[in-house]
Amino acid sequence: MSSSSAGASAEAIAHFRSLFQPLTQEGLTALAECYSDDVDFTDPLHHHVGRRAIMAYYRELMTEVSHCHFDFHQQHVLDQRCFLEWTMHYSHPSVRGGRTLSVAGCSHLTWRDQRVCRHRDYYDVGEMLYEQLPLIGWVVRRIKQRL
């Protein structure tokens, strides 16, 4: 396989990670360059296809949260695939009085020509969102305790 069709270099992965420490409106232009035009993005709440769609998602996210940054713990690279284990720290003015909250997760990235062409995030949506809401949070926490 030629280097142009290979996955990502260590530098490309490090650059990608750096743009989430913190994730800011100002960093979105550089982040867009890390994705292929036809990128396929999925997380527990969303699915977007194409760089424009995913960047619109990030722009909307950045207008809603007060702060968002990621601590990366482990990185596993195999051919064109990269797995990043992380903890996301975020604050939203409407959730828990704007307190900083944390949720653990993992990103599965597929790289093509030094750009991410598939990005799939895995995390507990209940921990991130539902458990933080007043009435629903109590119910979700009780269900998890019983399981």
Rank of each mutant, 00 (worst) to 15 (best):
G98E: 05
L19T: 10
P134F: 04
G105W: 00
G98V: 00
G50K: 00
K144S: 02
P93F: 09
E60C: 15
L19Y: 07
R99E: 10
G97Q: 02
H76N: 12
A6S: 11
L28F: 14
A10D: 14
C68P: 06
A8K: 00
T100M: 08
K144Y: 01
V140A: 07
K144V: 00
I143S: 03
L133G: 06
R52Q: 12
R112L: 01
L101N: 10
R146N: 12
S107F: 02
R51K: 12
M62W: 01
R99K: 15
R120M: 14
H69E: 10
G137E: 09
L61A: 13
R115C: 04
L135T: 15
T110Y: 13
T29E: 15
L78T: 13
V49N: 11
E64S: 12
R59C: 06
Y35R: 01
W138L: 14
H69L: 14
H89K: 09
Y35W: 08
H47F: 06
R115A: 01
E131Q: 13
D121F: 04
S107I: 00
V77L: 12
V140R: 06
L45G: 15
Y123D: 02
R96H: 10
C34D: 01
F83N: 12
T29H: 13
R120I: 11
T63F: 01
P93W: 03
L78G: 10
A30Q: 10
E11Q: 12
W138G: 14
A30N: 12
L147M: 11
A32Q: 03
R59G: 07
S4Q: 14
S36F: 02
G126C: 11
D40F: 11
Y35P: 07
C68E: 09
C34N: 05
Y57V: 03
Y122A: 03
H76S: 11
K144N: 05
F20G: 05
E131F: 03
D124T: 02
S102T: 09
A14I: 04
S94A: 14
E127R: 15
A53S: 15
Y35V: 03
D71R: 12
P93D: 10
R141T: 09
H92N: 06
L109K: 03
H47T: 14
T87R: 04
G126K: 06
I13C: 05
D71Q: 13
H48S: 13
Q74I: 05
M128A: 10
G137K: 04
V77D: 06
E11T: 12
P44A: 03
I54C: 04
Y57A: 06
A10K: 11
L133Q: 00
H92Q: 11
V65Y: 10
L135R: 15
E64N: 12
T24L: 00
Q80P: 13
L101S: 03
R112M: 05
T24K: 03
L109I: 01
S107Y: 00
G50E: 03
Y58C: 13
